Amino acid sequence: MDLRQLEYFVAVAEEANFTRAADRVHITQSGVSAQIRQFERELGADLFDRSARMVRLTPAGAAALPHARTALAAAQAIRTACDEVNGLVRGRLRIGMVTGCTVTPLFDALASFHRRHPRITIALSEDNSDVLLENVRAGHVDIALAAVAGGMPDGLESMTIVSEGLVAAVPPDHALAERESVPLRRLAAYPLICLPVGTGVRGVLDQACAAAGIRPTVALQATAPDAVLDLAARGLGVAVLSASMTAGHEGVRSVPIEDIDVPAMLALVWRSESIVLRALLPHCRRAFAV
């Protein structure tokens, strides 16, 4: 008795036809028939009643079928377990990261993961958040650090890193600098400096403006938050970013924006947990303290 015989037996039982079973297992009908006959001789019992047009299980065949399925499932589980172990030895981890966003804990997580699994190749790519999410869905990247407007995308797993409101960043001598907060409609009277369309922060701003019937003037765009802040510090417009993006920049003051109920979220997003991802995620949770 071998796994090949079990596979052919299950195929004939489920197809109730030797020809269809042969097509399913990709060998000739005579090959299937010969293996089934050999199997029956080894067992000392007929497994199929061949007297009718449709092949039917005998009582012995019906009794053997669930055990054959269990044996094949166990063999597949062994293959899967070995493949997963090999994946941790010789695997590849593809990571996407939002453009211009330096997130030190992610790099810390990758470093500790690399020390634990040095033979896994790590590939890192940057793009806008909407492209990253589509790449995760399509399987082009295994996991992505992406900014999300409002809530996590459907059909994907996620780990929220940051969830916060938007702020207006202006030079200290700007008319908005001493305010405790600024209404969205008043903010829209100024030329704005923003991240590009397709980023999470820009998505939150655009959604809020559309809901309020406001059409702001976006004077300048830059892919890196620091570049957005540097432009604002030089008086070229009001920067709109999330609160944490403005922390530590001495050339601007941050003023919370009113009337925006949807938070800007930064999250790790993935479609399904491979063995490599299951190994990576604990490093991410420790690095981000989540």
Rank of each mutant, 00 (worst) to 15 (best):
L133M: 08
L133F: 03
L133Q: 10
E134A: 14
E134M: 07
E134T: 13
N135S: 11
N135C: 01
N135K: 15
V136G: 05
V136T: 09
R137Y: 07
R137D: 07
A138R: 15
A138H: 08
A138P: 04
G139Q: 10
G139N: 10
G139F: 11
H140N: 15
H140R: 15
H140V: 06
H140I: 02
H140D: 07
V141R: 12
D142T: 01
D142S: 04
D142I: 01
I143W: 08
I143Y: 10
A144F: 05
L145M: 14
A146V: 09
A146G: 01
A147K: 01
A147D: 00
A147E: 02
A149W: 01
A149H: 04
A149P: 01
G150M: 06
G151D: 11
M152Y: 00
M152S: 03
P153H: 01
D154I: 10
G155Y: 12
G155R: 07
G155Q: 07
G155F: 11
G155P: 11
L156T: 03
L156Y: 05
L156V: 09
M159P: 00
M159C: 04
T160A: 13
T160L: 06
T160W: 00
V162R: 09
V162G: 01
S163I: 00
S163Y: 00
S163W: 01
E164I: 05
E164S: 10
E164R: 03
E164K: 04
L166N: 14
L166T: 14
V167M: 13
A168P: 08
A168V: 06
A168T: 11
A169F: 00
V170N: 12
V170W: 08
V170C: 07
V170I: 05
V170Q: 12
V170D: 09
P171M: 03
P171K: 07
P172Y: 03
D173Y: 04
D173L: 10
D173A: 15
D173W: 05
D173K: 11
H174N: 09
H174R: 08
H174M: 02
A175M: 07
L176E: 10
E178S: 14
E178C: 12
E180A: 15
E180Q: 13
S181K: 12
S181Q: 14
S181T: 12
S181R: 14
S181A: 15
S181C: 06
V182I: 15
V182A: 04
V182C: 11
V182F: 06
P183F: 00
L184F: 08
L184Q: 13
L184W: 10
R185G: 13
R186H: 12
R186Q: 14
A188F: 07
A188D: 08
A188V: 00
A189C: 05
